[in-house]
Amino acid sequence: MIDYQSGYILRPVNQVFIYFSLFCALMLNLLPIDNYSWVPDWLIICIVFWNIHQHRHVSVILAFGLGLLMDVHNSELLGLHGFSYSLVAYLAISWHRRILPLGLLTQALHLLPLFLMVSLFPVLTHWILSGEMYWSALSAALQALIEALLWPLATVILLAPQRRPIHVDHNRPI
């Protein structure tokens, strides 16, 4: 795989690192921080990243399972996060060829609707089912904006193990 920003060929991805990063993102989501709108959903950032960069290793089914874990943790309707995570994973897989050649900030702008979809889907579902709209819950759009702003940092951190060194060693075959 080629890193379009630097032009270097990336090393093959280690599957253990993929699942370790997903586990770390899940643990960050499970921290006992109240449901503030400024706390990003670390798991969806990681799911979208791996579905764009390595969609063969992270599937829609895995995203659905992680979403069910988040539903149980948040005491939400069962399947609410599961559906939104799997839908966003599917869209990330289908958009991966369009998003990869773009710059990091442009990628973040293209992914903002996906992050908005994940953060506003529970609010809209509760509105449809209960008939009551909690306008304070619409501050979830701030969460999506913070997730989009964290996208360049997440890209740099999660691609770091795959980057080849800048200085070429002529004794190394590749």
Rank of each mutant, 00 (worst) to 15 (best):
H55A: 12
D34S: 12
Q143C: 10
H96P: 11
H167L: 15
P122Y: 04
H170R: 10
V39C: 03
P40E: 02
A141T: 04
M133I: 09
L77T: 14
D71L: 02
V156H: 01
E132C: 07
V123T: 09
R172G: 11
L105T: 06
L26N: 00
W95E: 15
L10M: 08
L31E: 00
L28P: 05
W151L: 02
F64T: 00
L68F: 00
R164F: 01
N29L: 03
Q5Y: 13
L149Q: 01
V16Q: 08
N171V: 05
N171Y: 13
L78W: 10
F17L: 09
L124K: 07
L69M: 09
R11S: 13
H167N: 12
Q54W: 14
Q143G: 06
H81K: 05
M117R: 00
L26P: 00
Y90I: 11
P32R: 05
I18C: 06
W38P: 07
F83W: 10
V123F: 12
F49Y: 06
N74K: 06
F23W: 01
A140P: 06
M70T: 03
Q162C: 08
I9V: 10
W135R: 07
I45F: 04
L159V: 01
D41T: 10
S94K: 15
D71M: 06
H57W: 15
N171P: 09
I9P: 13
S139N: 15
S75Q: 05
V88T: 01
H73N: 09
F20D: 12
Q107Y: 05
M1C: 11
Q54C: 15
Y134T: 13
A25C: 02
L138C: 13
S119R: 13
R164E: 15
G103Q: 14
W151N: 03
A89T: 04
L145F: 11
A148R: 05
Y134M: 14
Q15N: 12
Y19A: 10
A144C: 08
G7Y: 11
L66E: 07
L104D: 12
N171L: 13
H110S: 11
V168N: 03
V156D: 02
R172I: 14
S59H: 01
S119K: 12
L138N: 05
M70L: 02
E76T: 09
S21K: 03
L111D: 04
S6Q: 06
G131Y: 04
H57D: 12
L120C: 09
T106A: 15
W50F: 14
T155N: 15
L120P: 12
S6R: 11
L62I: 00
H53P: 03
Q162N: 00
L129E: 11
A148H: 03
